[in-house]
Design a protein around this nucleic acid. Structure first.
Length: 687
DNA sequence: CCGCCTCGAGGTCA
DNA sequence: CTCGAGGCGG
């Protein structure tokens, strides 16, 4: 008899069996059950769950066959940003990386590294609460990604539930990829069904994860290897990266077999050689190897630069080179008026993609290459993606090649071009009168890293400008439904979508707003520094070049660009209009950061080496911390530089934790209570 | 820069 | 139904 109890038990039993066989098959690679039997178990489970909804579960292995299609992907903010890695293309660069580490750590000891192949797939972030997979997201821009939970659940070697001694909350990062065998089979089947084939395994994997219907994803041969932990709560973790990977393995994740610990940088280079040898026999595509400082404590000390950890580097394989012909060279005008030559190439496949364009950067580059139109050239895809002309093959010259003539006036607005002494680029002097510069400025304003206005792509901006509906970013906000829908290929639906996106973009952050203005040399990182240092726009606008240079990483040139920008009344008018009329707003300082160190009180003493006490104070206060003048029982930690005096003695007598300058900097680059506690613990051990 | 997915526009056809 | 734009990821 099928009593509720027996059904419940059967469901639990099926899940247990399927999970076990999944693990044996996809993680341990040693199946003990025929596929047909596995399928039968799965079918029975799916059937029972559909018949008895009360026994359904978000982490049941039946999730692996996919579920309801979504209307679209939601966005999610990563608890810790997903950073990228610095690249090295030669042993020399790797050794320089090692030297940088040692210099920063102030000693020349050998360091243990964890080495792992760099899989050519896509990074994902998986969040487990109470051991259950509750969220999976793409990397996105590093801060905000897209929720692809139901798609990731179909990946067979991703555990839906963790086993063993796992933390109550853990974010795991890994690479989703397609094995070469899986890719081949998928394309063979596509060919049989007269569907289009995928260009390469990476794109096939990326495309599979972007399916709104997870039932399609479930049919794609995807795998994932975990390579790091992100945010973790409530557990003791190993103090070595390698050991942490082993912990991940214990919790049920697949880890790449080739991961190894190496005692020093030279053995990392030997590892690179051995992986290079093995590369063609591996079951998946890789584009290099990654070296990470193995000690988590050292990782913490080293911290991060703007978008990458200081303690890791990707050692990439040399790019594949191919030969093709330069059909023509065109000139593009960028946002700052820079005129860039672009080579139109005879399309040629390079490492799985067809290349038909390559930037030539500037006049010097063309002179260096001695390039002419009609030349046969060697091209490669440099560092991941951007095609590059490497050299001209002189032997293939026919004699009918034409020289590349640089324009003396802007190809768009016919203003004279200018080459500033010491700069490689030529620039259009038309500035605001140049349509191309205005268009590029608006594109930049709307771009993902700036105000992120969905649906406002290149073509649309060009249309809006050429129809004279807008000439500055501020004009975007006065567009009406009828303005937009009169355009080619813009129906009411698209127009309304754009209006909604514009409305949404009004709420932004100070850093994004500053970045969106498109001030020369002010990229994302600089914009963030400015926002964090000044906390509001007015002080940035009125800051002198000297004021600006007090910020780390802002030198005289960047400072001058910023000062010049805000000195121009047209720019001031634009900013004013954006805020007063268009209604752009942002939270005072970024609240998120402002609260990170809220409630902590520091005292700074002694001479700091890398920045002044005032700067350290400003940085800590920007993160919400208090900085007091004298040590008392209320002080959470004393930051002691060189030649610290009475404050140090007093802190010691009150048993107040003492942080070194490097600790404080680590705290600023990773501002969290958790990190603060760790630093305090580490420092107390040191005493 | 390129490949992939998705969506909307606008055509064709019923 | 087809086409092209837009968004995304590396």
């Amino acid at each position: 008899m099928d009593t509720p109890e027996t059904i419940k038990e059967r469901v639990a039993d099926l899940r247990k069996q399927i999970n076990r066989h999944n693990h044996l098959y996809y993680v341990l690679d040693s199946p003990i059950l025929p596929d047909a039997e596995y399928d039968r178990l799965m079918q029975e489970l799916v059937m029972l769950e559909s018949q008895y909804p009360e026994y359904r579960s978000a982490t049941s292995p039946s999730q692996r066959v996919g579920g309801e299609a979504l209307a679209g992907f939601e966005q999610v903010t990563h608890r810790l940003p997903m950073l990228s890695l610095d690249n090295a293309f030669s042993p020399e660069e790797v050794r320089r990386f090692s030297k940088r580490l040692n210099d920063r750590l102030n000693n020349q000891e050998e360091r243990v590294f964890c080495c792992e192949p760099k899989l050519d797939g896509l990074a994902v972030s998986l969040v487990y609460e109470g051991g259950k997979l509750v969220q999976a997201a793409t990397r996105g821009d590093g801060e905000i990604g897209e929720l692809i939970t139901q798609n990731v659940k179909t990946i067979r070697n991703v555990p839906l539930e963790l086993v063993g001694d796992f933390p109550s909350l853990v974010e795991v990062r890994g690479e989703v990829f397609m094995t070469l065998e899986g890719f081949k089979k998928l394309n063979e089947e596509a060919l049989r069904n007269n569907e289009k084939v995928f260009a390469n395994p990476r794109n096939a994997a990326a495309g599979s994860l972007r399916q709104l219907d997870s039932k399609i994803t479930a049919k794609r041969p995807l795998s994932m290897y975990a390579y790091a932990m992100g945010y973790v709560e409530n557990t003791t973790l190993a103090e070595s990266h390698f050991e942490r990977l082993m912990q991940l393995k214990e919790w049920g994740f697949a880890i790449c077999d080739e991961v190894e610990q190496k005692p020093n940088i030279e053995s990392c280079l030997a590892y690179f050689e051995s992986i290079s040898q093995k590369r063609s026999q591996l079951a998946y595509d890789i584009d290099g190897v990654v070296y990470k400082i193995d000690s988590i404590a050292l990782q913490r000390t080293l911290g991060f630069v703007a978008k990458a950890p200081r303690w890791a580097i990707a050692h990439k394989f040399p790019a594949v080179e191919e030969m093709t012909k330069v059909l023509d060279v065109e000139f593009q005008v960028g946002r700052t008026g820079a005129i860039t030559p672009v080579a139109r190439l005879e399309p040629v496949p390079v490492a799985g993609v067809t290349v038909s364009n390559a930037t030539l950067h500037n006049q010097d580059e063309i002179a260096r290459l001695k390039l002419k139109i009609g030349d046969t050239v060697v091209i490669r895809r440099a560092g991941d993606v951007i095609p590059q002309v490497v050299r001209v093959i002189d032997d293939y010259r026919q004699g009918d090649e034409r020289p590349i003539l640089f324009p003396s006036e802007c190809p768009v607005c016919s203003s004279p071009v200018q080459r500033i002494e010491g700069e490689a680029v030529i620039r259009c002097t038309g500035n605001y009168f140049c349509r191309a510069q205005r268009v590029e400025g608006i594109k930049h304003f709307a771009s993902r890293k700036a105000l992120d206005i969905d649906g406002l792509g290149d073509k649309l901006v060009e249309q809006l400008v050429s129809e004279e509906l807008i000439e500055s970013p501020a004009d975007l906000y006065s567009l009406s439904l009828s303005d937009i829908s009169q355009l080619e290929r813009m129906g009411e639906k698209s127009a309304q979508n754009l209006l909604n996106a514009l409305e949404k973009s009004r709420k932004t952050s100070l850093a994004k707003f500053i970045y969106a203005l498109g001030i020369r040399e002010v990229g994302e990182a600089t914009a963030r520094s400015l926002a964090q240092y000044f906390g509001d726009l007015n002080p940035v606008m009125s800051a002198s070049s000297e004021d600006l240079q007090r910020i780390n990483d802002i030198g005289p040139i960047v400072a001058q660009h910023i000062e010049t920008y805000f000195a121009d009344c047209r720019n001031k008018a634009l900013v004013e209009r954006l805020i007063d009329q268009c209604g752009l707003t942002w939270e005072k300082v970024s609240i998120e950061n402002a609260q990170r160190l809220a409630g902590l009180t520091f005292v700074i003493t002694g001479t700091l080496e890398t920045l002044s006490r005032d700067e350290m104070k400003a940085q800590l206060m920007a993160l919400g911390a208090k900085v007091a003048g004298s040590v008392s029982k209320q002080t959470d930690a004393l930051i002691a530089g060189k030649k610290a005096g009475s404050k140090l003695t007093k802190a010691q007598s009150l048993a107040i934790p003492i942080l070194q300058e490097t600790d404080a900097r680590s705290l600023i680059s990773e501002p969290s209570e958790q990190n603060f506690k760790r630093l305090i613990e580490d420092s107390s051990k040191g005493i």
